[in-house]
Amino acid sequence: MMTALQDFQLDDVSNGEFSFCNVSQVITASECVFRDMHKELNLGDFTRIRQSHFNKRTVPKEKLAEWLETVCHILDSFSIPLLKNAMSNMDSIKKRVDDLQEEKINDQKEIIQLKDKIIEKKSDELNEVASTVKTEMKSFSTIVKNCPATLTKKTIEAAVKSACDKDDRSKNIIIYGIEESSDEVLRDKVENVLQEINEKPVVRDCVRVGFQRSGDHRPRPVKFSLSNSDHVAQVLRSANRLHTKEGYKSVYICPDRTVQERRSYKILLDQLKEKRNSEPNRTHYIRNSRIVSSDMNSSLSG
């Protein structure tokens, strides 16, 4: 092996496989050649090599031939194959990029087709709903025209309004007995009450109900909404725990009832009070809009 190549070792790259290790070896080989040149020419800087230095009589032709042979060996056996391999890789990368771009275009076309299908399906559903509403409205009109005198149009409309109102109220809760102040943050107060019964739903639209009359220091009820009726039912099931908490004995959690439902519930409360006075040895409570009574021993055992 040539003298200038004795200080380094180069792996065979005749197969054309690119490797960062090969690149590092080529760089090291080049530096070895330059170091040998600078040593022979007595130079301290790589950039100071000039043609005049090689014309010095102190540099024998054998040394110049060795350097030239070494550089040609590096270029021919290592640098050029690696450059060719890099160019081949670039072609491969370009082809892969082209394939990905084509794949992206096809995916976008497929997404557009899916969106068109969704729009078409929604249009069909809207047409179906419109047709159903139209049919139901005709049926409703026919019922109203043909209904007996006792079932008037006004009665039916009131029933429909009541059903819609009940659905709207199914997500609401009323709390009675929360202390009222001018600078209050209702959401915080409601969440504090719910935390006492280990419930943490997302509370929305907190508001005091009714007008505050002068001289009336009773706190107005607080109405708030939850995301769905299932959360409301869960809170109402846990509401009884509140009466065991210190400072909350006069606070009550109730569903958002209509005027008629409140009147009916007040009648039930009056009846419950009478039951408890007339039959103090039994347990009385309201369940499913009616009063239920049981023996204390049986309720305790249950």
Rank of each mutant, 00 (worst) to 15 (best):
P219T: 07
I197W: 02
N198W: 02
T152Q: 09
D183T: 15
R208W: 02
R187K: 15
V193A: 01
V203T: 00
D183W: 08
G210T: 10
N172M: 11
E191G: 03
S170F: 05
Q212R: 15
K171W: 00
V160E: 06
I174D: 00
P201F: 01
K153H: 12
Q212T: 13
G215K: 12
C206Q: 03
V207M: 03
I197G: 01
E179T: 14
P219M: 04
S214L: 13
K161P: 02
K153L: 00
K189L: 15
I178D: 01
G210A: 09
R204T: 01
E180C: 03
E184Q: 14
E191A: 08
G215H: 12
K171N: 09
K166T: 15
V207G: 01
G210Q: 08
I173E: 11
D165N: 13
R213G: 11
A163C: 09
V160N: 08
N172Y: 05
R220I: 06
R204M: 04
L151Q: 07
I178H: 04
P219C: 04
R218L: 13
R187H: 14
C206D: 01
D216A: 06
E157T: 05
T155P: 02
K161W: 02
I156M: 13
R218S: 15
D188W: 07
E180V: 06
G215I: 10
G210E: 03
G215E: 10
V185C: 14
N172L: 13
D183H: 14
N192Y: 11
D168S: 10
E157C: 11
Q195S: 10
R208L: 02
A158C: 04
R218I: 06
F211I: 13
Q212K: 15
S182M: 10
R220C: 07
R187V: 15
F211A: 14
I173L: 15
T152C: 05
K189S: 15
I174G: 00
D167R: 14
R187M: 15
R204K: 03
A158I: 01
Y176V: 00
E191P: 03
A163I: 12
I173R: 10
E196P: 00
R220F: 09
Q195M: 09
G215W: 10
V160Q: 06
N198T: 07
S181K: 14
N192C: 11
R208K: 06
K200D: 04
R208D: 04
V209M: 11
D205W: 03
V160M: 06
T152N: 07
I178L: 05
I197A: 00
Q195I: 04
S170T: 09
N172F: 05
D216M: 08
I173M: 10
E199Y: 00
V203S: 00
T155L: 12
R187I: 15
E157W: 06
V160W: 05
D216V: 13
G177T: 07
A159F: 08
K171A: 08
G215N: 13
V185G: 09
F211T: 14
S162E: 14
V209F: 11
E191R: 12
S214Y: 11
L186C: 11
D165Q: 13
E184N: 07
K200G: 01
